[in-house]
Simulated assay, not measured.
Amino acid sequence: MSFQNPDDESIRTLLKKVKNIAVLGLSPKPDRPSYFVAKAMQGFGFSIIPVRPAIAEVLGQKAYASLRDVTGSIDLVDVFRAAEYLDAIVDDCIALQLPAIWIQEGIVNEAAAERARAAGMTVVMDRCIYKDYVALCS
């Protein structure tokens, strides 16, 4: 893989300045990784913004059908969607001028990640935000 993630210090700095995390693909099912990670991050004090069509709320927070529907500010988009959806997700992030995208562990789309970075976004790919937060910030 030619894509390089930011170094640990840059990731630590990012996680310390983020407040509002939009979680794309956040499942309402407690046994799903997206639910576990979002709930843990919420427990660490982050504001979680669920983004998933056809549900009203997750983790006590109003859910939105798409990033473009979110009414509040977004500091970071945490993606739990398959790699083939990343191009459209990055398009939305760029259009909304969002500062950072975190593409969860096991999801890789180098072209989309490089396009997001070229648009000025901080990009972390194929890493777990929960694991990195625990390792670098707690």
Rank of each mutant, 00 (worst) to 15 (best):
S2N: 15
Q4G: 02
N5C: 09
N5L: 14
N5W: 14
D7C: 08
D7A: 06
D8H: 07
E9I: 07
S10M: 02
T13L: 07
L14N: 08
L14R: 04
L15V: 05
L15Y: 12
K17W: 00
V18D: 09
V18W: 00
K19Q: 14
K19M: 05
N20C: 00
I21N: 01
L26Q: 10
S27F: 03
S27W: 06
S27N: 06
R32W: 00
P33S: 08
Y35H: 09
Y35P: 01
V37T: 06
A40K: 09
M41I: 07
Q42F: 02
F44I: 03
G45I: 02
F46I: 05
S47F: 10
P50Y: 07
P50K: 05
P50G: 03
V51W: 11
P53G: 03
A54Y: 12
I55L: 08
A56D: 12
L59S: 02
Q61L: 02
K62Y: 12
A63N: 06
A63H: 09
Y64T: 08
Y64N: 09
L67V: 01
L67Y: 05
L67N: 05
R68S: 10
D69S: 12
D69H: 08
T71L: 07
T71S: 10
G72D: 15
G72E: 15
G72N: 06
S73N: 13
S73W: 05
I74N: 06
I74D: 06
D75A: 04
V77I: 10
R81I: 14
R81H: 11
A83L: 11
Y85W: 10
L86E: 14
V90E: 13
D91S: 02
A100V: 10
A100Y: 09
A100N: 12
A100L: 11
I101C: 03
I103K: 04
I103G: 04
Q104P: 04
V108F: 09
N109D: 15
N109Y: 01
E110M: 01
E110C: 00
E110H: 01
A111D: 13
A112S: 14
E114A: 05
R115A: 14
A118E: 15
A119W: 10
T122E: 14
V124D: 08
V124A: 10
M125H: 13
C128E: 08
I129H: 06
D132Q: 14
Y133S: 06
A135S: 14
A135R: 14
A135P: 01
L136I: 12
C137N: 14
